[in-house]
Simulated scan of single mutants.
Amino acid sequence: MQINSLLSAGLGAYQAGQQRVDQASAVVADRTLPAAETSQAMADTVELTEQLVQMKVGEHQANAGVRLLQTADEVLGTLVNTKA
């Protein structure tokens, strides 16, 4: 695998994770929970919970992308040191 493709994959994973967090947080910010315990309130609570889960998934996805970028950077540094 080439370093460029590792860097692209890492950046893509980070950006996808960031986008997932942004979308989920926008949904959470737009929602307010009603005080009454109705079926709609329960559905809203489930939706908010799903969005919070999506935010956490996005966080993990972005962290995986960062780790991939760090690994590609280390490999590139090793290659440069070997050639020098």
Rank of each mutant, 00 (worst) to 15 (best):
V80G: 00
A29G: 01
S5N: 10
A64P: 06
A16Y: 01
V53A: 10
S39P: 03
R20W: 04
V75M: 14
V80P: 00
L79Y: 15
Q61W: 03
H60E: 13
A64S: 15
Q51A: 15
V75F: 14
G10K: 04
G65L: 07
A9P: 00
L79E: 15
N81T: 11
E47K: 08
G17D: 11
R31P: 00
V46A: 09
E37Q: 09
A35F: 11
E37F: 02
Q54W: 02
G77W: 05
E74F: 03
Q61P: 01
A36N: 06
R67E: 13
L68Y: 04
V57L: 12
L68V: 11
I3C: 05
P34E: 09
A72S: 14
G65S: 07
Q19Y: 07
M55F: 05
K83N: 08
G10E: 05
R31Y: 01
M55C: 06
Q2A: 07
A35E: 15
K83E: 10
S8M: 02
R67H: 14
L79S: 14
A29H: 02
Q40T: 04
V46H: 05
T45Q: 12
S5K: 10
V80T: 12
R31A: 02
V53Y: 11
N4R: 05
V75E: 09
V21W: 12
E59H: 01
M55V: 10
N63P: 02
Q40H: 03
T38M: 01
R67L: 09
V66P: 03
Q40S: 02
Q15P: 00
K83R: 09
A36Q: 11
R67G: 04
S25A: 04
Q70R: 14
A72Q: 12
A24M: 07
K83I: 08
A84E: 13
Q61L: 06
Q19I: 04
D73R: 07
A72E: 11
